[in-house]
């Protein structure tokens, strides 16, 4: 049983509360938050950061940090896009996803090798490889914004349903890519909850030496983890360009910081061992609602960055404070 005290010592309820308060504020200021078309717009904005956050959260839980996943996503989708365009491919979009995931896997494997086998610090490695992948994209492939092949254009036009706001006569389409996000979240849930591999990710984040003694193959788990992040990034790349029908190589730049901030906001402990998918989803939801509602709230453009910064500081501050006070109370318990 989870007691009320333990429940509120977690960060999810606080993030959820922040989302509810923010939603009510937006609703009060615009009357537009709880309309079908607005919710669809928000869900659409949620897809790409949501996909990226899954891998990002697992890496942080394992005690590492990855800042290269946006570079992986950009390079994987860009190479895929160029190959398919040049070969005049007209078939199914599944090949695009598979290729991009494959390129992502290769790049993730490089991260994994450097981190798991050479035991280099994760931040330094991923800063380096992230820069390398971006550099390759602009140097070796001299990347520039590009069209996308017909399969990806068609994929971008797939619509699950259309939400119509009859008051204003506005409509919004729910893109089919949301299904990919739901599918990936489900697989990640199964992995983390029911497999030894998933438990191992938590174990090495909690205490690597202890995990090793308990029989976990730490190297293999880390290798798997960074490969998985690469695959997810590759898939995200294709989702992104299909929704805009336009492959812009700099479309992901800067997004890694938003995603990491959201994951931490969702209660994932930066030092590893602790974190949930639910918290991550809530963290991303809060960040995306905020980023896409400043006009609805009526915040002038010149103030939007200050407002966003303040919410992140307050949000992560509350989370960190909660976790710190839990530690304090545990320590106090030991003393008595």
């Amino acid at each position: 049983m989870i007691t009320a005290r333990r429940f509120f010592a977690r960060s999810e309820p606080w993030v959820l509360a922040a989302i509810v308060i923010l939603s009510l504020l937006i609703q009060a200021r615009s009357g537009q938050f709880f309309t079908g078309n607005n919710l669809v717009d928000l869900a659409r904005a949620f897809i790409v950061p949501g996909l990226l956050s899954i891998g990002c959260m697992m890496v942080i839980v394992s005690g590492g940090i990855d800042v290269s996943f946006t570079a992986v996503a950009a390079l994987a989708m860009y190479i895929t896009d160029k190959i398919l365009l040049q070969s005049g491919y007209e078939g199914n979009v599944i090949l695009a996803y598979a290729m991009s995931a494959g390129f992502g896997l290769l790049m993730g494997a490089l991260n994994g090798f450097l981190i798991a086998f050479l035991r280099l610090p994760t931040l330094v490695v991923t800063l380096g490889t992230g820069s390398l992948f971006t550099g390759l994209m602009f140097g070796a492939f001299s990347a520039s914004a590009s069209d996308v092949p017909p399969a990806i254009v068609a994929h971008g036009k797939e619509t699950l349903f259309t939400a119509v706001n009859s008051d204003l006569g506005l409509s919004s389409n729910m893109p089919s890519q949301i299904l990919i996000l739901v599918g990936m979240l489900f697989l990640a849930f199964l992995l983390l909850r029911y497999t030894m591999l998933g438990r191992g990710i938590y174990a090495i984040g909690g205490d690597e030496a202890a995990a090793e003694r308990a029989g976990f193959n730490v190297r293999a788990i880390k290798m798997f983890l960074y490969c998985l992040v690469g695959v997810l990034a590759g898939i995200t790349g294709i989702s992104r360009i299909s929704m805009m029908a336009y492959a812009d190589p700099s479309t992901f730049q800067g997004m890694e910081l938003t995603v990491i901030a959201a994951v931490v906001l969702g209660g994932t402990r930066v030092t590893g061992g602790l974190g949930t998918l639910t918290g991550t989803i809530l963290g991303i939801a809060l960040m995306m609602i905020l980023a896409n509602s400043l006009i609805l709230i009526g915040i002038p453009t010149y103030w939007s960055r200050a407002f966003t910064g303040a919410v992140i500081i307050i949000g992560t501050g509350v989370t960190a404070h909660q976790i710190a006070s839990t530690h304090r109370s545990q320590r106090d318990l030991k003393k008595t």
Partner: peptide, 23 residues
């Protein structure tokens, strides 16, 4: 809202335009 900023990003332009027409 006399001036809106899109951070030179296509997706942001799309999102900001949607917000403007809703609000």
């Amino acid at each position: 809202e006399p001036r809106v900023e899109i951070m030179d990003n296509l997706d942001t332009a799309y999102q900001r335009a949607k917000e403007l027409f809703k609000k």
